[in-house]
C-alpha cells in the first residue's frame, strides 16, 4: 500500500479511529433485530473468521460437498484448489449463500462466517459483510464512481463528501485510484479487464467486508493483470480474511498461507501452503499436485 497520502488526509474529516482489536472487529453481535450501533462492543470471541463443521451440500439428491470441516484464521489467505467440478466454487458460494439462487440446493452442517451462522443469518447482512469477487469482472454498466458507491448508497449514505471520501479510499486500497482518478464519471465498461476486476474489488471493499471470497479472480485476465491482482491479494490480507478459489496451483502457492485440496466434494487435505505442496500427507494430494490427474 504505497499511495497512502490520499486517505491519510481524509482522516481529519472523520471520527477518530475506533480501537477495535483486529479480531474483535470481525465478531460483531449476532444479528439482533434492533439497530446495532456502529461502535457496538465486540461480544463473543470468534477464534476464526470462517469455521466449517461437517458441512454437506446437495443439488437435489446429488451430494456436491460431503462432510467438509475446517477453519480459516483471520487475516490470512486460504486457497482452495482441486480439479474442475470438485465443488470448490460451490464451497466458496456457501460462505455468502450465493447458492440460494440455485433451485434445489440443500445444506447440512454448520458454517460460521464473520461471527454469523450462515444458515440463520439475515442473508443481506451476511453478504454485505462477506465480499465476493467473481471469475469474470462484472462491473455494473454505470460510472466508475457509481460502481464503488453502489453498496454505500444501499447503506443509506447520501452525503456527497462522505461518498467521495469512501470511494477514493476503496479505489486506493484496490490500487486503482491512480489510474482512474481523472475519469471517475466514465463508464466502468471502458476499463480494461484487469482494471475492471480491481474495480470490482474496490466495490466490494467499500462496504467494509470482513471476509473476501474470490472465485478464480484472475482466470479471465492476462499475465500482467494477474500479477497485479495477486499483489493486491497479498496486500489486502493485512486487513481482511481472504478465501480464493483457483485452478492454478502456482497461483495458490504464491499467494496463500494455507491451501485446501478438494476432490469430488470431499476435503482431502488442508495445511500450510508450503507443507501441502512439498510434503502432502495424502497420496491423492500428491498425485494431484504432481499432475497425475486434474
Amino acid at each position: 500500500m504505497k499511495p497512502r497520502a490520499g486517505w491519510m488526509s481524509l482522516a481529519t474529516q472523520t471520527r477518530p479511529p475506533s480501537v477495535a482489536p483486529a479480531r474483535g472487529e470481525s465478531a460483531p453481535p449476532p444479528p439482533a433485530p434492533a439497530a446495532s450501533a456502529p461502535g457496538a462492543p465486540p461480544v463473543a470471541e470468534a477464534p476464526d473468521a470462517i469455521s466449517v463443521r461437517d458441512f454437506s451440500l446437495f443439488y437435489g439428491a446429488h451430494p456436491a460437498l460431503k462432510h467438509i470441516g475446517f477453519d480459516v484464521p483471520a487475516h490470512s489467505v486460504t486457497a482452495i484448489i482441486g480439479p474442475s467440478g470438485c465443488g470448490k466454487s460451490t464451497l466458496l458460494r456457501s460462505f455468502n449463500r450465493m447458492n440460494d439462487l440455485i433451485a434445489g440446493v440443500r445444506t447440512e452442517g454448520e458454517v460460521r462466517v464473520a461471527g454469523l451462522d450462515v444458515r440463520s443469518a439475515d442473508v443481506v447482512e451476511l453478504r454485505r459483510r462477506v465480499g465476493m469477487v467473481f471469475q469474470r469482472p462484472n462491473p455494473f454498466p454505470k460510472s466508475i464512481f457509481d460502481n464503488v458507491a453502489f453498496g454505500l448508497r444501499l447503506l443509506g449514505i447520501r452525503d456527497r463528501a462522505e461518498l467521495e471520501a469512501r470511494v477514493e479510499q476503496s479505489l486506493l486500497r484496490a490500487a486503482l485510484w491512480n489510474e482512474v482518478r481523472d475519469r471517475l464519471n466514465r463508464s466502468a465498461l471502458q476499463l480494461s479487464g484487469g482494471q475492471q476486476q480491481r474495480l470490482c474489488i474496490a466495490r466490494c471493499l467499500a462496504v467494509e467486508p470482513e471476509v473476501i471470497l474470490m472465485d478464480e479472480p484472475a482466470s479471465a485476465l492476462d499475465p500482467t493483470a494477474t500479477a497485479r491482482i495477486e499483489e493486491l491479494v497479498l496486500d489486502l490480507k493485512r486487513a481482511y480474511t481472504i478465501v480464493v478459489v483457483t485452478h492454478n496451483m502456482q497461483q495458490a502457492a504464491r499467494i496463500s498461507d494455507r491451501t485446501a485440496f478438494l476432490l469430488d466434494g470431499e476435503l482431502i487435505e488442508i495445511d500450510e501452503t508450503p507443507r501441502l505442496f512439498t510434503s502432502p500427507s495424502r497420496k491423492l494430494t500428491e498425485d494431484y499436485i504432481t499432475g497425475r490427474f486434474g
Binding site: T14, P17, P28, P38, G39, L154, G156, A165, R173, A239
Partner: peptide, 21 residues
C-alpha cells in the same frame, strides 16, 4: 506498520437492512 486502513473512516453501520429497505 500501519493499522488496518479501514479504521480511518468511521465504521459503517452494522446489522441487517432496516425497516424501510
Amino acid at each position: 506498520m500501519s493499522p488496518a486502513p479501514r479504521d480511518r473512516l468511521a465504521a459503517l453501520p452494522r446489522g441487517g437492512p432496516g425497516l424501510a429497505r
